[in-house]
């Protein structure tokens, strides 16, 4: 059984302008010790998906449906008390901006200890010792002295390490990382990614890595979900997605990425802007920007269907497989040819 099984998850927000469909029928699952990458551009609903699972959406405006089965228990219908027990102990989360994610008025030692003492009945001393242990594990130099420092005394990379230490303090089974390296420099990003991989081995946690960076996903994910306009465009194993992408949006994402290992004169660009989720396009949500658009795309929303001969690989596009295989091969060949 999967550790987390999300089925047809929907989250709508009520706003003054109408209902925003932030997440609109998303399904995926995460197994023990596995890393799932969720890629998409801003506003594609990848963050809201995870906040919904954690029960962290504003209650007044958010409406959710579907199921998120955590070890056989639905998180969407769990009581607030039960959710609080799970949050931080079984499922932990780290956020994009390490600068604002720590409380500026509390010492980091206290913030770490708080995370532990909320879930375990331990003395302050024990919690502090455990906090120290984790700060060392995430590679903070002179950790003993830094326990009594405030967040503003740390650099961005160090704060993200503190956040990671805090999320791991209760040995969670699942770590949700929401763009954990977006705000950081590349060398710091490399440090943090290496750290997450190392800790994952050590602690055996599953990881959901939310990012807009295909490079990050390619490097650390086992499975990938590509989200576009609140829906899943494509999902599968990392090799399947990167070697045989089946959705024009995935092609666009890959083609629009300038990369170190390939020379292209012009980047493939996806025309236009991501749609507003107040009034999403009819039919396939990608159709207004899709270079392969057909009449059917404007009418019928394609279902997420398995790709034949490729078990575990699902996609939602009306194009026939022959065209897809041809186009994907062309795209990849183009990159490879110029890479050599």
């Amino acid at each position: 059984m999967a550790l987390l099984e999300v089925t047809d998850l929907k989250t709508y927000f009520r706003t003054d302008d109408g209902v925003v469909r932030a997440v609109d029928g998303v399904s995926f699952s995460v197994d023990k010790g596995q890393t799932l990458g969720i890629v998409g551009e801003s506003g594609s609903g990848k963050s809201v998906t995870c906040l919904t699972i954690m029960g962290l959406n504003p209650k007044r405006t958010a409406m959710s449906s579907g199921t998120a089965m955590w070890k056989g228990e639905d998180l969407l219908t769990a009581t607030p008390k039960r959710l609080r027990e799970i949050r931080g102990s079984e499922i932990a989360m780290i956020f994009q901006d390490p600068m604002t994610s720590l409380n500026p008025v509390h010492k980091i030692g206290a913030q770490l200890a708080e995370a532990m003492r909320l879930h375990e009945d331990v003395s302050k001393k024990t919690a502090r010792a455990r906090a120290l242990e984790l700060l060392k594990a995430v590679g903070i130099p002179r950790a003993e002295r830094r326990l009594d420092d405030y967040p503003h005394q740390f650099s961005g990379g160090m704060r993200q390490r503190v956040m990671i230490a805090m999320s791991l303090i209760n040995n969670p089974d699942l770590l949700i990382a929401d763009e954990p390296t977006t705000a950081l420099d590349v060398t710091t990003q490399a440090q943090i990614l290496t750290l997450i991989e190392k800790l994952q081995e050590e602690f055996g946690s599953a990881v959901i890595m939310i990012t807009h960076d295909l490079g990050v996903v390619a490097e650390i994910a086992d499975d990938v979900v590509v989200m576009y306009a609140a829906e899943v465009a494509e999902k599968g194993g990392v090799e399947q997605i990167f070697k045989k992408p089946h959705h024009p949006y995935t092609w666009g994402l890959m083609g629009s990425l300038p990369r170190l290992d390939a020379d292209v004169e012009r980047l493939v660009q996806i025309q236009g802007q991501p749609p507003s989720m107040l009034r999403p396009p009819t039919g396939c949500r990608f159709h207004p920007r899709c270079p392969y658009v057909m009449p059917i795309c404007k009418e019928v929303d394609p279902a997420l269907a398995p790709v034949s001969d490729d078990p575990g690989h699902l996609q939602s596009c009306h194009l026939d497989e022959e065209t897809k295989n041809r186009e994907a091969a062309k795209l990849l060949a183009g990159m490879m040819a110029e890479a050599s």
Binding site: M54, L56, R84, E85, I86, R87, G88, S89, A92, M93, F95, D97, T100, S101, L102, N103, P104, V105, H106, E114, A115, L118, H119, M163, M166
Partner: peptide
């Protein structure tokens, strides 16, 4: 609306503690 308040909730802090220690203090 601050990120650290979300962090506190993600830690599993009960609402009164979130209010006292993270919201009101700031």
């Amino acid at each position: 609306g601050e990120d650290y308040v979300r962090t506190a909730r993600a830690k599993g802090a009960p609402e009164w503690l979130v209010m006292r220690s993270h919201v009101l203090r700031n």
